[in-house]
Every structure is written in C-alpha cells, then in structure tokens.
C-alpha cells in the first residue's frame, strides 16, 4: 500500500520537476501564501499581548503544530477532494478497474510536491515557537503532529466520500477541510463554548493541537477537561480514521457508473 503510494507520488513528482524553475517558484509562492496566516497573527500581536489568554509564542506554537499537520495532510491527501471531477469526467471507472486501491490512486492523483513550501513554513514557525518556549514535554510535539495529520487525512477521506453524493457542489467540502485547518490555527479559547464542545466530542478537531497543546504547555483547559485529555489524541485520531474509512467504502459502493 505504502509502496504504491510512493511509486505514484514519485511519478507525479518527476512530472512536476520537469520544469525546475517553475517548480521552485511554486514552492516559494506556497511558502509566501502560507506566510499570510502568520502575518495576521503577528499583526494581531502588534496590537495586543494576549489572544484568548495566550501569549504570542504560545499562539505561534498552536499555529505551528496545527499548520504542520494540516499542510502535510494537504500535500499527501488533499487530492481526494476531487472525486466529483473524476465522476463527472468518467475517469473514476478507470480508477476502479486498476489493481490498486482507489483511495491510494485518488490521493496521489496530480500529487503536487510544490506544496512542500507550505509545510516548510509551518515547520519553521513551530521550530521558532518550540525554541522560544523551552517546553518540558517536548516528546509530545511529534506525536501531536502525527495525530493531527491522521485527523486531517480522515477529514479529506470524508470529503472524498461526501463527493459521491455532492457531485454538483464539490466546493462545499472545502468549508470542512480548509475550514477545519483554519479553525485550529488559533487557540480554541477564543471560540464559543458550544462550538468547542462540538469540535471535541463530535468532530474531534480539539485533539489536533488544542488539548494535547494544553498538556505540552502545562495550561489548564478553560472548559474544565483534565490535563490528560490531551493524551487521548491518538485514540480520537484512530477512531475518526476508522469512521472515515467506512464512509469511503460506502461512497465507493454508492457509485454507479454511467456505463458509457
């Protein structure tokens, strides 16, 4: 499975690097576009010293972990949200005939390695924040990023599965995938309590970086969850991944070819 993924992604990488200057420029542009989110945070902290009870470095830590997980998932799995295009073009039939998992094929379809620019930007911010904060529970940070990656991979799988139904308005899923990515960029303490509860117990976005982040930072949860709640992130991520797998299979089963 991993081998097919790497092979297909490598094919697209070779195609994309056929024009090295264009590839380098797209990587740099990705980095700059992602820098806009960072600039927003920096401008906010040019006006205040605390946002939602968190200082600049703490907010950058939460932004860095969320963005690193999100941009990695965007690089590796975001092409899953183009299922509806394949359905309309009829190319999904070809995908289903091939002896490789449809999920792998669609995740790697038009794999665009220049998105690495955004990953690098997120990694640089996280690097800065970790260095500035002198964290004691540093070991937790890689685990946070992996759990976040799994949660976003599951969200993109859901997005792909939904498109078997939403063939006419595929853009709707952007609100869930990119919206979730934007949602966890800021400390969840700024949002309404009901929204945070819903994104803890229904859609476990709080496990991307918020609850584990509070554990790493040694901060108390404003909604009163115990500090070990952050350690449940791997369980939350795996449950969501399993559910998204079921949704995906349901989507594939739901699909009826036009037959032409």
């Amino acid at each position: 499975m991993v081998r097919s993924y790497v092979l297909l992604a490598w094919t697209w990488t070779r195609a994309a690097t056929a024009y090295p200057v264009s590839f380098a420029l797209m990587t740099v542009f990705g980095l700059v576009v992602a820098g806009m989110d960072l600039a927003v945070i920096l401008i906010i902290f040019a006006n205040t010293t605390s946002l939602g009870g968190f200082g600049r470095e703490e907010v950058l830590f939460l932004y860095g972990t969320a963005s690193l997980a999100f941009t990695l998932a965007d690089l590796l799995f975001s092409n899953l949200d183009r299922v509806s295009q394949h359905i309309r073009a009829g190319s999904l039939d070809t995908v289903l005939i091939r002896p490789v998992s449809a999920w792998i094929q669609l995740a790697t379809d038009r794999f665009f390695p220049a998105r690495i620019g955004r990953v690098l930007q997120a990694a640089a911010v996280l690097w800065y924040a970790v260095a500035a904060l002198e964290l004691e529970r540093l070991w937790m940070v890689p685990l946070m990023v992996v759990c976040g990656l799994v949660i976003f991979a599951a969200l993109w799988t859901f997005a792909g599965a939904l498109q078997f139904v939403l063939t006419d308005a595929p853009e709707v899923v952007n609100a869930f995938t990119y919206g979730s990515g934007a949602y966890v960029q800021h400390p969840l303490s700024i949002y309404g309590k009901e929204l945070v509860r819903a994104t803890t117990f229904v859609l476990p976005l709080a496990f991307v970086n918020w609850l584990p982040g509070l554990y790493v930072l040694g901060r108390r949860d404003p909604l009163g969850l115990p500090s070990w709640a952050g350690l449940l992130a791997p369980a939350a991520a795996l449950i969501l991944l399993a559910l998204s797998g079921l949704a995906w299979r349901q989507g594939i089963r739901h699909y009826r070819s036009t037959g032409s």
Binding site: I44, N47, T48, T49, G52, H186
Partner: peptide
C-alpha cells in the same frame, strides 16, 4: 471569533 478576541483585549 478572532476579531472578537482581539477587540476584547483592545
């Protein structure tokens, strides 16, 4: 929500 948090602080 981001703007509300900022305007609560300032």
């Amino acid at each position: 929500y981001v703007l509300i948090a900022l305007w609560q602080a300032r």
